[in-house]
Design a protein around this nucleic acid. Structure first.
Lengths: 223, 223
DNA sequence: TATTGGTCCGAACCCGATTCCGACCAATAT
DNA sequence: ATATTGGTCGGAATCGGGTTCGGACCAATA
């Protein structure tokens, strides 16, 4: 039966089915993050989850739906745990006083999130090549991230420390460019840890986005 | 026979085989750039080139080799036409007097190159997921691009207009981040043309990388 | 006790990559 | 002129992966 349309009363089997689904999604998450989407076969997922191939199909669906369910669980388009953490760091950013603090909070949050999220985003990008549904989700996520970055830019501007010659879009563009999976991978190829990544981002953004702190132009002359 | 090791004397068949190879590569280039690597089957390439599947294999090789040959032809790791153009714009950059001119020359060159190159880079990225040979080529290309950007940064510094608090790596990082396929696609999604892309890049780099022109800090205060 | 839902096993189907083989034809060699 | 060779063609055959089906099993539920 269609897993979405199942109706249970007070049924033990409901929880059992849900547990199977969770196991399948956890297996898929690990394998997609590890080996990527293409190299992971449905049979691999089934084996990892300890179920049959057929159960993967009945519990979740086809391969693209598998990925979308995983992404949804990890990035939380609905009511998942990570969603709360996202809210947490947004709150922390808004609570921070200075622009530098805001930037450091954001960079630290990304340092924590990116290692988990990047493999999934790359898997999604892979899948989007051949699956329109995945392409839509990928684009929706990109939209949401871009919107978050514009909000971040606007919040930064509130401190009055942002370079006045940069509009929010320009700020968001640079944040976007330096926060892409590609850029993350570039830094990863230098052997950087999540902490180093966060520090690098914070430093970069402070230098590029903020007005020099002690007297205009000071930072620019110190050499 | 291995297409690489063929030996001809004064043979008409040599040219005919080479023509077949060119036709196959041209077909592959178009299809890969258009529909991506995954969605293009070897049979598609054969049909487009007007030859049989088997001929594709004897003339070039397997699918990944097909892509590598196409990339090699387009990006010119050896002696291909585009290579010359790359040299051209590098010369033009070095010849330019001011930092702004250098940046504009580079951005214009990228505006011309990226529309052609980006689809191939993305195809290569796709193929790299499952093929180690493609991954090596992708990484080698990334290395070369990064090296070019560091050279660009060093050249810019020669004008004395570069912000002195940015080292060459920091400059190259931003150039890299804003010159990635991902960033190109972002701008493309805004409906920008190659010219607009070039102007945006030039403006962005001038604002972020150069010392304010008329009196230190002037640009930063004008609001 | 009959039914139902979730699963398992495996067979079957479709597709795309890749290989193999026999046939054909034009250019070359003897 | 005839034998050979190289490039190509058609098509069959193999292999792996996604996807579907049908029958069997088992535990929970009516």
């Amino acid at each position: 039966m269609d897993p979405v349309k199942r109706r249970y009363r007070s049924d033990v089997r409901a929880e059992r089915a849900a547990a199977t689904r969770r196991a399948v999604l956890a297996a898929a998450r690990d394998l997609f993050a590890d080996g990527g989407y293409e190299r992971t076969s449905v049979a691999d997922v089934a084996a990892r989850a300890g179920v049959s191939v057929d159960t993967v199909y009945t519990a979740v669906g086809r391969k693209p739906e598998l990925l979308l369910a995983v992404v949804d669980m990890a990035l939380g388009s609905s009511d998942e745990p990570v969603r709360a953490e996202q809210r947490d760091y947004v709150v922390a950013i808004r609570a921070a006083e200075t622009a530098r603090d805001k930037i450091e909070v954001y960079a630290a949050a990304l340092g924590r999130l990116m290692p988990t999220v990047v493999p999934l985003l790359e898997a999604l990008a892979q899948a989007a090549v051949t699956d329109p549904g995945c392409a839509r989700v990928r684009d929706a996520i990109a939209q949401r991230r871009a919107a978050n970055m514009r909000l971040f830019a606007a919040d930064l501007r509130g401190t009055g420390e942002l370079r006045p010659d940069l509009d929010d879009d320009a700020v968001a563009d640079v944040v976007w460019a330096t926060n892409s999976p590609q850029y993350f991978v570039l830094l990863g190829s230098r052997g950087w840890t999540a902490t180093a990544y966060a520090e690098h981002l914070a430093d970069l953004w402070c230098r590029y986005l903020l007005e020099p702190a002690e007297g205009a132009g000071a930072r620019f002359r110190e050499g």
